[in-house]
């Protein structure tokens, strides 16, 4: 596939999110930039609190308008979503971009049937009759692997298990066949066996429908199963971006390397390696230079200068001045990988 000639589906350019706090503001993400090609599956990883959900909600235009503010650009096929009037953005949501959330238990309206919640989405965007909406909702339920979809159409959320609810959520998100799905930790709240099924369903539907997916997770194992590209965030910034295969083998940023090494499933080691020592810096107490510096084993004097996100060879981007000189371990020990 030649991505260079294709117009990107999504282009996020220096996106910063601010929340109002008292008199002032706090910045929770800074200069987040990445692109997605049509049909591409990109993983967005990072520790809890690093700004993954905020970024996802920003793409959807779902951050609270009264208490938040965005800077930068979000281009969907060249159209700037931040500059777009709210009513036009609303018509994009659920039709061209959809989002599913972490908690399938509380993400569905408890007093309406699953079927109603799917067909109302369809009817909000397309001029279809009730009967046709019903048929297409039942099709959508079947597509996400819900058994007896005709019966399930009339079920209420509390009558379904967590996994089935997340499938119903996916059916809602995909019923209008959007170009981009933002999946915010869709499996975190589920049992391990169910997690794999949900990830499979998502991957399969993306491929079948030619839909792009931004897969937000803190589980690199799941990313390696589904995604071709990976964006790593740390403390509100993108610190590395590249092909999943490249990064698994040789991460360029010490933080990505730390994330990979604390991953038991991929290293095939019995004991989980200790997570990266130290704590994420708190807002208002950000180190002036590299934000990872207080926890970085490779820190040196140049690291106290601000670190730009820059391209590295053969491809990818890293926010680390020592990226070229460091040889960092991925999921495989360096000796064996070399």
């Amino acid at each position: 596939m030649d991505h260079a000639v294709k117009q990107p589906l999504l282009e996020v350019n220096k996106l910063s999110a601010f929340f109002r706090a008292g008199r002032g503001e706090v910045q929770v993400t800074r200069d987040v930039s990445f692109t997605m090609a049509p049909g591409e599956m990109v993983g967005l990883v990072g520790e809890s609190g690093c700004g993954k959900t905020v970024t996802g909600l920003a793409l959807m235009g779902l951050l609270p308008p009264a208490s938040s503010r965005l800077e930068g650009k979000i281009l969907l096929q060249g159209q700037d979503l931040i500059a777009m009037p709210p009513s036009a953005k609303r018509r994009l949501r659920g039709r061209r971009i959809s989002m599913i959330f972490q908690e399938p238990m509380s993400a569905l309206d408890p007093v309406f049937t699953i079927g109603h919640q799917i067909s109302e989405t369809l009817r909000a965007h397309q001029d279809v009759s009730r009967a046709e909406a019903r048929n297409r909702a039942i099709e959508a339920l079947a597509r996400v692997g819900i058994p007896e979809p005709t019966l399930r159409y009339d079920a209420y959320p509390h009558q379904l298990s967590g996994g089935m609810r997340q499938r119903a959520m996916i059916a809602i998100a995909l019923v209008c066949e959007p170009q981009l799905l933002i999946a915010d930790e869709p499996t975190t709240a589920l049992d391990v066996t169910v997690q794999a099924q949900i990830v499979d369903v998502l991957g399969e539907l993306c491929t079948r429908m030619g839909m792009a997916m931004l897969f937000i997770t803190h589980d690199l194992g799941l990313v390696s199963q589904t995604c071709s590209r990976l964006v790593t965030m740390y403390a509100g910034e993108v610190v590395e971006e590249g092909r999943v295969d490249d990064i698994l083998l040789r991460p360029r940023h010490p933080y990505s390397s730390g994330l990979l090494r604390s991953l038991p499933a991929l290293t095939q080691r019995k004991a989980r390696l200790p997570a990266i020592p130290g704590r994420v810096p708190v807002r208002g107490d950000m180190p002036p230079g590299c934000r990872f510096q207080p926890r970085c084993a490779h820190a040196q004097p140049p690291c106290t200068a601000p670190q730009p996100l820059r391209a590295v060879q053969p491809q990818g981007e890293v926010r680390c001045c020592r990226a070229e000189e460091l040889i960092l371990p991925g999921v495989l020990p360096v000796e064996r990988a070399a």
């Binding site: 959807m60 779902l62 609303r90 018509r91 994009l92 949501r93 659920g94 039709r95 959809s98 989002m99 959330f101 908690e103 509380s106 993400a107 569905l108 309206d109 408890p110 007093v111 309406f112 109302e120 989405t121 909000a124 965007h125 959520m169 809602i172 998100a173």
Partner: peptide
């Protein structure tokens, strides 16, 4: 609530969210 966030994510209008889902709840 989280489910109202879902309704916004589906692109429903504020009026529909309030008068149908809000009131029934």
């Amino acid at each position: 609530s989280q489910y109202v966030r879902t309704l916004h994510a589906k692109g429903l209008s504020n009026a529909r969210i309030l008068w149908q889902h809000g009131l029934k709840n």
